[in-house]
Amino acid sequence: MYDKRPQIKKAALFKPEDFRFDPDTKTCLCPAGKRLYSNGSNCVFSGYRAIKFQGAQQDCVPCTLCNQCLRRPEKTRTRQVAFFLGKAPGRESHTDRIKAKIDSDLGKQMITRRFATVEPLFGNLRGNKGLDRFTLRGRSKVDGQWKLYCLTHNIEKLAHHGYGC
């Protein structure tokens, strides 16, 4: 049976917001008021710059708040904390690059042409002809089926513009 009695919750741990970080002097104070040492001033995590700090053993081991600060005080003796400073320079993601390309004047022209040429093809094949899925499996078979779909579309275009008479 499920135990419905109220569970005793473990004390919430300190979060990075509980530490006082000064970006101008690049210093950090823990909730107990002790100064943490910088152990990485220009780190990159997932494309973001960060500054890492770590507490000194002489401050963290005797501290009365270590149960609220450390997840496993029996294994880890000092607290580490990182503060993010924004995106790292020179590490532009693929998404950021494509956004910049699409937002440029040339990109807007390319998208306009794509909507005028490619999108009607998909709309015609899916909406008018009901060709909305591939029935074959494997790259070469699907490629052949796609070419047949396109051939069907192009033959219809030619017929409507008077090339089949």
Rank of each mutant, 00 (worst) to 15 (best):
V81W: 02
C69I: 02
A32R: 04
A88F: 01
N39E: 12
F115P: 01
S93M: 05
P16L: 04
R79W: 07
D18K: 10
C43R: 09
P31C: 03
A116S: 08
I111H: 00
E156H: 10
G130S: 04
G164K: 12
F14Y: 14
Q54K: 11
C69H: 02
G162E: 12
V118I: 12
S46V: 10
L131A: 10
N42W: 05
R97I: 04
A56H: 14
Q7I: 14
A32M: 13
L148A: 11
N154W: 00
L131N: 13
C165P: 12
N124V: 11
I8F: 04
G33K: 07
N128R: 10
N154C: 01
D59F: 00
T117S: 10
S41G: 13
G40P: 01
S46E: 11
R77V: 04
M1Y: 08
R97P: 00
K141T: 03
P89H: 04
E119C: 05
K157P: 01
K75L: 14
T64I: 12
A11F: 06
E74F: 05
Y48Q: 14
N42T: 07
P73I: 03
G138W: 02
T78S: 08
Q54Y: 06
S38I: 09
F19A: 03
V118F: 04
G162Y: 08
E17V: 14
L106K: 15
A116M: 05
Y37H: 12
L13E: 06
G144H: 11
L125Y: 02
G47L: 02
R79I: 12
I98L: 06
F115V: 11
P23H: 13
E92K: 14
T76C: 10
G86A: 04
A50Y: 09
D132S: 12
K10W: 06
F19V: 03
L85I: 11
E156W: 05
G127R: 12
R5I: 00
E17M: 12
I155H: 04
F83L: 08
P23R: 11
C150M: 09
N124L: 07
N154M: 02
T152K: 07
C30Q: 02
A12V: 11
F21I: 01
I8S: 11
T64Q: 09
F45V: 12
Q57K: 06
T95C: 07
W146F: 14
K101E: 15
G107T: 02
R91P: 01
F134N: 09
R71Q: 11
E74W: 05
G40M: 02
D143E: 13
D59N: 07
S140L: 08
V142S: 03
A56L: 12
G144Y: 13
L65M: 09
I102P: 00
N124M: 08
D3T: 07
H94K: 07
A50G: 10
